[in-house]
Simulated scan of single mutants.
Amino acid sequence: MRAISVTRTIPWRTAAAAAALALTATACDAATTDGPEGTQGDASIEEGFTVGLLLPESQTTRYEAHDRPNFEEAVAEVCPNCEVNYQNANEDTDQQQSQVDAMLTEGVDVIALGAVDAEGAGSMVNQAHEQGVPVVAYDRLAEGGADHYVSFQNERVGEVQAESLVEALEDEGTIDEGEVVVIHGSPTDPNVDALKAGADPVLEENVEIGASYDTPEWSPDEAQSQMEQSITQIGAEDIVGVYSGNDGMAGGIIAAWQGTGVDEIPPVTGQDAELSAVQRIVAGEQYMSVYKAIADQARVAAEVSIALATGEDIDEYDVAESTTVTDAEGNEVESTLLEPIALTEDNIEETVLADDFHSVEDICTDAYSDTDFCEEHADELE
């Protein structure tokens, strides 16, 4: 079996950014590990084939703004004659099942699946395997024994969020002066259990939790309602911080605080480094987010997908940890897991700017032009 030699082309502009990804220069052999059904393809890069990409939802802006274009670009670079069949399920498991049905009917050669629901996706993985189509679990670990899993160290994401919140409260001297509201993401998202496993022990050890919620579909509107309920029940003056599972919900949470007319919003966490969140961070409305090198994640997933479709080996990866994880059904899945980075105003330059994730022009619109960050970068806007 001939190996596909993978050369990393993503430009890491600073040593800090490179180190933050916890590079491990070890051979991954990602495509050589068969899933429970032994799924390996025999498609040809020279002739081209179809790669299916199914993403779970669009409320989280990263999927359309970063995951999809980076995945498509990586496929085009490695396999110029390949096509990407892209679908978004909009948080609807039935819709995602229909999309998988259609892709398999049309003869897709490999599927990269960002599952709406881990359990529901198990039947999709099995269905693909029955037709000899390998599956890469993308960002979320589907059940059914996927052939590879590409994501971030999601338990570590939760730890990073919780540790950052604790650090903020310690710095402000408020950690013992009130309660923290915890607003987790969608209970059907398989990543949420890992986020909780990382965040909850840190929070439980260091702060008093006044209220805790799960948020269906990561809904910003629902998170706003939950925050309003907490403010009513606990009292604004007795809430010292908010753990928010992602940036979309953080926007709703902050809107709830703004509706109270308080002079200063307590520290609020987030995840995904959405543009609106970065703007809230420079404005002092949101304390932190979690930056994830989505370009690397999408590129690895695309390359693994191509290797699985062609039956080739990938003989090196140096951007992430190669490991094995176990899905909810007990299947061991070879995995590539990237390291998350806590994002505050202090490291915007060496993360989102250095990696061209957002630009100064993106961040410093008129509404944010008078922030310290934008004033410091005013010469770049001229």
Rank of each mutant, 00 (worst) to 15 (best):
A115C: 10
Q99A: 06
S230C: 01
F152I: 09
Y149F: 15
Q153I: 07
A118Y: 07
D117T: 08
V192Y: 00
S225F: 03
D193W: 00
E208Q: 14
V110R: 05
V166K: 02
A197E: 11
Q229V: 05
L104F: 08
P201C: 10
L165N: 10
P220W: 05
G132F: 06
W218E: 04
D147P: 02
Y138D: 02
E155D: 14
A199W: 01
Q161K: 13
E130Q: 15
E106V: 00
V133Y: 01
Q161C: 09
G145A: 07
D214Y: 12
E130A: 15
N191T: 09
D214L: 11
R156Q: 14
F152T: 10
V160K: 14
L195K: 06
A128Y: 02
E159L: 09
V182K: 02
A236Q: 10
E143Q: 14
L165M: 11
R140I: 09
L113A: 09
Q99N: 12
A197H: 01
Q99E: 14
V207S: 06
V100M: 14
I175Y: 03
S225P: 02
R140E: 12
A142S: 15
D117Q: 12
G178Y: 02
V150E: 11
Y138H: 05
E130K: 11
V110H: 04
G132D: 08
E143L: 06
Q161N: 08
P134S: 04
P216A: 14
S151K: 04
A128N: 02
V133H: 05
E205Y: 01
E177D: 15
D171Y: 03
P187S: 12
E130I: 00
L195S: 03
S123N: 09
S219P: 04
Y213V: 02
G178L: 02
H148L: 03
V182D: 00
E222V: 14
S164N: 08
L165C: 11
A115E: 08
G114Y: 08
A137I: 03
E205A: 14
A112Y: 01
A146K: 08
V157L: 09
V133N: 02
E167Q: 13
A121Q: 01
E177C: 05
I175R: 07
E155K: 12
V150P: 05
Y213R: 04
Q131V: 03
S186Y: 12
N206F: 03
Q153F: 00
P220Y: 09
G107T: 06
N206T: 02
V110L: 07
D221L: 04
E167N: 10
S164Q: 09
Y149P: 08
S98T: 13
E167H: 04
A102M: 11
Y149K: 09
I209Q: 09
H148Q: 13
A146M: 07
E177Q: 14
V150K: 04
I175D: 03
D189V: 10
K196I: 15
E130Y: 00
A146F: 09
A168Y: 05
D221Q: 13
A236S: 15
S164Y: 00
D193V: 08
A197N: 13
Q233S: 15
A211K: 02
V125N: 03
